[in-house]
């Protein structure tokens, strides 16, 4: 009986299922199948043995990470940066989306949207080069301007304290356009009757935003934030590596798990040790997302991811 019902459902929803198929296939191929490679984290990899034939070596691969004494620092940095990125980027994205929605001119809206979106397509390598030309001490634009106006130049590349701010700004600059479009789509989906009703009741722009737009955005915000939280222990390697590079003076405030691992293993190419670091990030990420989802569930069952 049951099976019959299952097949009837398949036939009935065939178009939808077909549309879903590429995504499912993608995840099976690139997320589930490679998962078996996780065993590498516990192995002494060699080419003769390959992934499954290499000898086991227990927790040896994890030692470099924890014995260095840097594990806590880089894990903390990674989490804090990602929290800052999530908060700042989402607030800016929502703000930009609401502003764009409220602005009437169609042309203005389109152009602004494009300009905001543009940085998203610039590669981190290029962003890193732009940053160097802006910030370097001798001939950087910022310092040339400072000197021209008679002020003392700032030694940005040798001062760790500036970097959290710089990195958050750069990340926002690059990510705002993309998120804005998602939120704009969500806002466009809000029932216009609500706005009409509010207007008739005499609500002004701010009241409309505060009482209609924002509450209606909650589900989108929660989903996007939950998805982002899953990656909270994964540093954006492109961002950190290209902005900071191998500048040891900045590591105290800019080193994230990914750059640390890259630096440690780039000369030794120990696949097992890199796998161990990836495994560590995945476990932490999994724990965080479970926790976050549980918290959301407790607050409102319908809004949790699962």
């Amino acid at each position: 009986m049951n099976r019959h019902g299952f097949w009837r459902d398949v036939v009935k929803h065939r178009t939808l299922l077909l549309m879903l198929a590429p995504a499912v296939l993608y995840f099976i191929l690139f997320a589930y199948v490679p998962m078996a490679g996780i065993v590498l984290a516990f192995k002494q990899f060699n080419y003769a043995g390959g992934i499954f034939g290499s000898p086991w070596n227990g927790l040896d691969n994890f030692r470099f990470f924890f014995e260095s004494g840097d594990a806590w620092r880089v894990t903390r940095n990674t989490a804090l940066y990602n929290i800052a990125f999530i908060v700042v980027n989402n607030v800016l994205q929502i703000a930009a989306a609401i502003l764009l929605f409220e602005v009437a001119g169609k042309w203005f809206r389109k152009i602004t949207q494009t300009v905001l979106f543009l940085p998203y397509f610039i590669s981190w390598v290029v962003v890193g080069a732009i940053a160097y030309n802006l910030f370097n001490y001798d001939v950087g634009t910022v310092n040339v301007l400072l000197k021209a106006t008679g002020m003392e130049p700032v030694d940005i590349y040798n001062t760790a304290a500036y970097w959290p701010v710089i990195l958050v700004i750069v990340s926002a600059w690059k990510a705002v356009g993309y998120g804005t479009i998602m939120y704009l789509a969500a806002i466009t989906g809000i029932d216009t009757e609500m706005y009409e009703a509010a207007e008739i009741d005499g609500a002004n722009v701010f009241q409309r935003i505060l009482n209609i737009t924002i509450p209606n955005l909650y589900p989108t915000v929660i989903i996007l934030v939950l998805l982002a939280i899953g990656n909270i222990f994964r540093g954006d390697f492109g961002l950190f590596y290209n902005m900071v590079g191998n500048n040891g003076l900045l590591f105290s405030s800019t080193d994230v798990i990914d750059t640390f691992v890259f630096r440690s293993l780039t000369t030794s190419n120990e696949i097992g040790m890199s796998a161990a670091a990836g495994f560590y990030q995945s476990v932490l990420g999994f724990a965080t997302i479970m926790l976050a989802n549980w918290a959301v569930r407790k607050y409102d069952k319908d809004r949790a991811l699962f």
Binding site: F64, E67, S68, N158, N246, G248, L249, R263, S264, M273
Partner: peptide, 27 residues
Amino acid sequence: DDSKVKNQVAGVGNVMLRYAIPLEYGL
């Protein structure tokens, strides 16, 4: 042959980049 101390080599390399390079360049 660093295969027995690869954990330490990874750590030491990191320290050299972080502490020795800035020191040597007079920063």
